[in-house]
Nucleic acid binder design. Sequence first.
DNA 1: CTGTTAGCGCCTTCAA
DNA 2: TTGAAGGCGCTAACAG
Lengths: 339, 339
Amino acid sequence: MNARPHRVTISDVARAANTGKTSVSRYLNGEQHLLSEDLRGRIQRAIASLNYHPSQMARGLRRGRTRLIGLIIADITNPYSVHILSSIEAACREQGFTLLVCNTNNEVDQELHYLDLLRSYQVEGIVVNAVGMREEGLNRLQQSALPMVLIDRKIPNFACDVVGLDNLQATSRATEHLIKQGFEAILFLSEPIGAVNTRRERLYAFRQALSLHPTIAAENSEIPLHDSARLDAALHAFHARWGGARKAIISANGALTLQIARSLRRLGVQWGSDIGLLGFDELEWAELAGVGISTVKQPTQEIGHAAVKQVIRRIEGSEEPVRELKFAGELIIRGSTAR
Amino acid sequence: MNARPHRVTISDVARAANTGKTSVSRYLNGEQHLLSEDLRGRIQRAIASLNYHPSQMARGLRRGRTRLIGLIIADITNPYSVHILSSIEAACREQGFTLLVCNTNNEVDQELHYLDLLRSYQVEGIVVNAVGMREEGLNRLQQSALPMVLIDRKIPNFACDVVGLDNLQATSRATEHLIKQGFEAILFLSEPIGAVNTRRERLYAFRQALSLHPTIAAENSEIPLHDSARLDAALHAFHARWGGARKAIISANGALTLQIARSLRRLGVQWGSDIGLLGFDELEWAELAGVGISTVKQPTQEIGHAAVKQVIRRIEGSEEPVRELKFAGELIIRGSTAR
DNA sequence: CTGTTAGCGCCTTCAA
DNA sequence: TTGAAGGCGCTAACAG
């Protein structure tokens, strides 16, 4: 294995098949019906024997189509994101695209870096899973002028296709479940809402669902994800304030649910018996944590597929109006919301 | 925004800066010291005003260096793999490489597909996280003749750099901990061992550590990850067989630990009180599951960084003998192994 | 049906 | 210190 064993090119194949590059190119691009039986056979044999693989680099350069899609993920340690990544990757492969994965680690610098990078590799479109992304980063995206689809999070004042959970439906289902279970005070907990539409929508739907039940107390609180002191304080206060009553917490996402569970542990409060708990995003360990934690499971497979499909439509030039695709969530009931 | 607003090229920049492409190219490739102050300024301004980004496609084609590294992951739903992915991605960016992520979903077909794909995009090297990969897939990799580094899993009869946990050290630490806690019977549970070196090494170290303590019973059992019936049976049998004695389980990886915890739940056996439990791979929910689950945490950051560093050495032509880099694991003690 | 030709955007001799 | 020319591997006219 020497340093450069002269990568085999289309010319090599042409020579071996005793023909020109054009025919080989045609063979490669599904225009085989234009070739004679004989020539086709020769080319096929040449390709096989030389173990030839066309260079996507050259192809991309020439045609301007790289068959590359970029995925920008704000926080890959978020389980929701991982499921999205997994389904997007599968969808891309099915559609003949390859995925360039960029984890911005929630840092704006890195996002900028990746946006440039994706451009320079001439990705044909991008999918952005902005869960956890900061405002500043989202603004950057607007300028990219590339076919683009957002997952879950929208960008304020930016018309762009979005795919995600039907927050109204899912939150209503969840809230109604808690009502049915006889909870008398419910705390909706989220990270700081800011302009994040998902948080906003979920909170809105929560309040709306409870407005029909004026006897049930509806509270909400915004806590930064890693501020465990404030989280402890908020939970402790809520728990104390509603001493004897049946009370429950709704967590706006999976990462927060983890923090809440830890906090309740520290406080010595048991979910299920002392307090109700229900979280957005399914967690693989939900059934193992104490009596189990009820969750709203997002159809990540469908969401990922829909996102890829949509970005490909845009790549292929669709000028249809911006679409917002919403998928229903599934309520999974466990011990944390039992009577 | 028209369909093709003529992507701005190096020629555009040259024209705008009133110079030739060569100088622009020099400017881009860090040979700025060769340029006059004046020219440098003009080029800089031209690039900025045109918002020019060099095409990596063309660059790659020309130089044969794409600055692309491929990562093949067998199962991205495995939390260990996610952490590895995350650190590899970070390391690549630091080193000026971009990562092409391929999730084979543990299917051989997809692996073949991706190997071809990576070749066709002319990645300069690949990192393989074969956790969960089947034998057949591993064999395929041997033929790829690309700079390559394996993470965790080796390929039988194939000399290749490997980065991973120091299985001997980690297993010894874990086993000794269980001994110290007074367990009298220990069951080492893994997926079918086959030729998988990590499983083999961990089991070997386990048996070796216990060979110094002949009074302690050492057992092991191999269960396919998703065969819950067999898992239930094995755990039930072990639990029953050692009725009154203090007994513990070691799980060979995180995905299996999850299944074991579920199985114990089904059987109504409590870890911590009824049985000890210790698993390889740290889990974010480890502290929340009952009294908590003790784990062996792998230094995934370091492992990922080391892997990237090593593959880059190979890319740069290092002919040093194959290396095996081992990193120590950290034992995290929780309620599941308490006295 | 098949081959020739001219670039895609860039880097790299080579010459000025 | 600068620029012109050629070609990386491929595809898409345009001829035969």
